[in-house]
């Protein structure tokens, strides 16, 4: 609910300000969509039309063939496959270690649990930028350069995830666990049979957020995956822009990269927004 009260919206200052805000918002929506529409239609232009001046929004002819050609030229399915391997690998490792860790910290009466939580949250101050070069040297020593594992493991240590799971598990009553213990369940049984089914929404938030963040990563794969056939989508797009690739093909790449995120977003809006509110951090 806004600052302006319902009865004020009818007249006077309240009405003026309300009108003014609505005007700005309605004007800004098309203004904000325009660059992305231009990207979308740029996909179908021919390679001279896309750099014609003055620029046009709609293509004269829709060249659907551009899409197929671009996919073939860049071997794009391979990049998409790489991105998916990295995303799902990270989701599996990160969600597993973070949820079990959150369970341990929250419910298993460990000594120093609060200090340990600080130990995990503290890593949020250590950005990927600060650790990328030592990580590169470390992975180099272990022979993991050009291995998806190097990227997956680097992304898996995300302090916020542990915090998210711990906070959620704290809200589940201990009596449920005690009842299960009396029935003879061990910790692993309690975790898989009680905690996980009770916390499916938090798993959804965790999975969707990890997917979004890892999907968009650029610097870490740039450093750790130098081989062309290991590149995720983002690296392929970057490389295309620094080599002389025509802009219409680049627009195909950009649209291809945005589409899955938009589709996932439209389906799972609630979880994604909730996740953003709770993290306050992207990547």
């Amino acid at each position: 609910m806004g600052i302006i009260q319902d009865n004020e919206r009818k007249s006077g200052q309240g009405k003026r300000i309300y009108r003014c805000f609505m005007g700005i918002l309605l004007l800004s929506i098309p203004l904000q969509i325009l660059p992305h529409l231009w990207m979308f239609f740029g996909m179908f232009k021919d390679k001279l039309e896309v750099i014609a001046f003055p620029p046009s929004l709609f293509p004269k002819v829709f060249l659907w063939a551009n899409i197929g050609q671009t996919f073939e030229y860049f071997n794009l399915w391979n990049n998409i496959k790489n991105t998916m391997i990295i995303c799902f690998g990270t989701i599996i490792v990160q969600v597993t270690i973070s949820s079990t860790c959150g369970f341990g910290l929250s419910k298993l009466r460990l000594k120093y649990a609060n200090h340990l939580l600080l130990f995990f949250i503290g890593t949020m101050m250590i950005s990927n930028q600060a650790t990328i070069i030592p990580t590169f040297l470390m992975m180099n020593k272990w022979g993991l350069i050009n291995n998806y594992l190097s990227v997956i493991l680097t992304f898996s240590a995300w302090g916020w995830m542990v915090f998210l799971f711990k906070n959620f598990f704290d809200a589940i009553p201990d009596t449920l666990l005690d009842a299960a213990r009396i029935d003879g369940a061990n910790n692993l049984g309690i975790f898989t049979r009680i905690m996980v089914p009770l916390s499916l929404p938090v798993f959804a938030i965790a999975i969707l957020n990890t997917f979004n963040v890892v999907y968009s990563q650029f610097m870490v794969p740039l450093m750790l995956l130098p081989a062309k056939d290991k590149w995720p989508l983002m690296l392929q797009i970057y490389t295309a822009t620094v080599s002389a690739v025509p802009w219409n093909q680049i627009m195909v790449l950009l649209t291809t990269a945005s589409l899955p995120l938009i589709v996932i977003y439209i389906i799972f809006q609630r979880y994604i927004v909730e996740g953003i509110v709770m993290t306050g951090i992207k990547g």
Binding site: V93, T96, I97, S98, T100, C101, F103, G104, L105, K107, L108, R109, L110, L116, F119, F120, T123, L153, S156, A157, G159, V162, N187, F191
Partner: peptide
């Protein structure tokens, strides 16, 4: 319970 925390501890 330490077994639950250990993997994350190592990775971090």
């Amino acid at each position: 319970g330490w077994l639950f925390v250990l993997p994350a501890l190592i990775v971090f």
